[in-house]
Computed example of a mutant assay.
Amino acid sequence: MRNKLTTPPILAIILIVFLTFLVSGCITNGSTDDQVKTITVTDMEGRSVTLKYPVERFVLMDSTCTAEFSSVYGEGFDSKIVGWDNYLRENSGDMYEKYVEKFPTMAEIPDVGSLDDNTFNAEKVIALNPDVVIMPNWEFMWNGEATKEALARMDQAGIPVVFLDFYMEPLENSTKSIQLLGKITGKEQRAQDIVDYYEEKVNSVYSRLEKIQGKKPTVYVECAYNGPDTYGISYGDVAWGDIVKKAGGDNIAEPVLLNKSKALSAEYLVNQSPDIIILTGRNWSTPGSLKMGYTFTSNVTKSTMTPFVNRPGWDTINAVENRKVYGIYHGYCSDVFNFVALETFAKWFYPEEFKDVDPVDTLKEYHRKFMPIDYSGTLVYRYY
């Protein structure tokens, strides 16, 4: 007589094994800790960092990195930033205004303080429970001890920190930093699209420069933050100085500053009499600073640049005599837009060879392709 249990013995065994695994937790759903994935990356300080993959909760300790983060992440980026410093709001208020206008909830992102002014609040960061804290590696140059202390606090709390670099070696490390963002967010194809666009523009500049012979123009770059009465920092072989060199210019600050950033004296500048002067502007609150950005017209930029051009002794400088004084948005030395700075500098240095190049068109195209906010305002400017 056949047993009333008609399930074949082998199927019964499989069923028992399956139920055993289910009860023991070997088969899980997406909400269990057992299925949390991790990824190990090398950041732009050469540190090996293991973190959750893909990262969902970010603290940006250089909130101007919002431009890169939003470009890479795409739709929904604003909900992933759970905390940031005050740098975007305080120093790039024009860009902050554009983002908040389109994404109002960004105005509610908690401010965790800044390493620059010793207001960084480690406890607040920890309470936000981020998956990662993003830091720029230029913090080690400007705020070394505070950065080391913050890093130690995050390590102690088990919060990974990833360093990016769009400043120290901008034209070498920007694409690597974009790809790193793509890797940890799971947006690698989007990041690669940005890198491909970036490299196409950069390589086009380099290929033209290779064909140019003769003496390089001498160049002076100044951060016009302080107003005309006090000379702002210039740049050795770093940030703007690196871009000047890559664009085929001879940076007058490099022999003095090497790889540092520091103000040059008025006497040195006048004696050097550079062929080209570039002043960098932003939405700074300091009186007399050069105003440039998403919310400024060219008339405002010109009116705030004039007092710089009228400084004592500047009328004897070659750049002023030959009407080669320019302005550029300061953020472009520390973000992905440095490729536009390269293109712009090359055009200013060698106008005939780059006469068909329009950096403003490049900016507009990049915004259309990758940015969640529209291009507007004055980001590149010729004074004369």
Rank of each mutant, 00 (worst) to 15 (best):
D275P: 09
T280F: 03
D275C: 09
R208W: 06
I109D: 03
S177Q: 02
K291C: 07
C65N: 13
V72D: 09
L164Q: 05
S298V: 07
A157W: 02
V300N: 01
M305R: 00
W348D: 05
I212Y: 03
K4M: 15
P359R: 02
T344K: 06
S177W: 03
K183H: 12
N310I: 13
A107Q: 07
K201D: 10
S376R: 09
G186N: 03
P255T: 08
I277L: 14
D85C: 06
S265G: 11
V221I: 15
L279Q: 09
F345Q: 07
L128A: 08
T147M: 12
F308E: 05
K201M: 13
M44G: 04
A107K: 12
Y220S: 00
N322V: 13
V161K: 03
G236S: 05
R368C: 10
L164C: 03
Y73P: 02
T301R: 00
P217T: 06
F308S: 04
F140Y: 15
I252R: 02
Y332V: 00
A127V: 06
Q213S: 13
E353S: 12
R311L: 09
V36F: 11
L279G: 07
N203M: 12
T304M: 04
E56I: 07
A122K: 01
L264N: 00
I184R: 00
F120K: 00
M61P: 00
D117Q: 10
Y326F: 11
F349L: 15
T295K: 06
T64Y: 06
E267I: 10
D116H: 14
G144F: 09
G331F: 05
K124T: 04
I27N: 10
D196N: 15
P359E: 05
W84F: 10
W314I: 10
M371E: 15
E108C: 07
K245T: 15
E169P: 11
G313S: 12
V36P: 09
V219I: 11
L257M: 04
I178H: 00
R57F: 07
N143P: 07
Y197W: 12
I276H: 03
V219E: 01
P217S: 01
T6L: 15
T344I: 00
S207R: 13
P136F: 03
W84T: 06
P170S: 08
P351H: 09
D361N: 13
E90Y: 13
Q213H: 10
S273A: 13
T40D: 10
F18T: 14
E101K: 15
I27E: 11
L5M: 09
G281R: 00
D275S: 09
I14Q: 12
G227W: 06
D250H: 08
K148Y: 13
K211R: 14
N259W: 09
Y99F: 15
V132L: 08
D94I: 06
P274H: 05
L51Q: 08
